[in-house]
Amino acid sequence: MARPSRLQREVGIVLARRDHGEADRVIVLLTPEQRIDVLAKGVRKTRSRKAGHLELFSKTEVLLSRVKQSWDIVSQAEAVTVRAQLQDDFSRATYARYVAELVIRFFEGETSRQLYDLVDATFERLETAAPAALLTRWFEQQLLALAGFRPEWGMCVGERDAELCREPLRPRPTDRRAYGIDAERGGALCSDCLARHRNERGVRALSPSALSWLQALQQRDYAEAASFDLPPATARELAQVMDRYIAHHLERRPSALRILDG
């Protein structure tokens, strides 16, 4: 007896894909409600009518046939927005893979509308003129907040005499002493707490400029954050500290940006 199936219409963003069986692909789809893996049959054949509609990062309307205790199968697919720039430009394509990887590693199953809108807007900006590295740093801050890992950049997360320090952090370019970043406690440290916690796991020095950038990236919307000039040295520092911060919480280093290392 055929198992009961029902059709369901969904709009989703293709985050990742992997080959499955002879000519099928598993598509990782982010919809406004969830992150799901669906099966697209025969899409690796050139004659497939669905193939071009399920490319990475495109926003696609799919008709899913839901089978209990089995894969949801894509029975129709029609691309709403195809992100061709994220296929052709190597650097943008790399950052787009990183964005998708973070979503996949931090979220599973049910997700929120905010996440969907964030990813959609990020891909759209990434495809246009936005400076990819700055946009990616902004995205990281927003994503961590949605994932429940919102770092505290506004006040010190250090401890003194078994009490939280909570010193408000107002970094200025004239500051002589470095601040700190503490991945384990989930935020920034004042200079005194950095000195005290320096040798602990996940603690590193942070320049005043990098800290004020982290505060801005977390609190402001993208357009506002992008209106300031990000000096190259700070950009490099931010990339490094966030790479370590995220790796600490994921317990693995994201792989997508590794390709830019060498």
Binding site: R17, E55, L56, F57, Q87, D88, D89, F90, A93, R97, I259
Partner: peptide, 14 residues
């Protein structure tokens, strides 16, 4: 002519 193939091609071009 897939995302992965295009990405590889873009990398090779560089």
């Amino acid at each position: 002519p897939t995302s992965e193939g295009d990405y590889t091609a873009a990398y090779l071009v560089q």
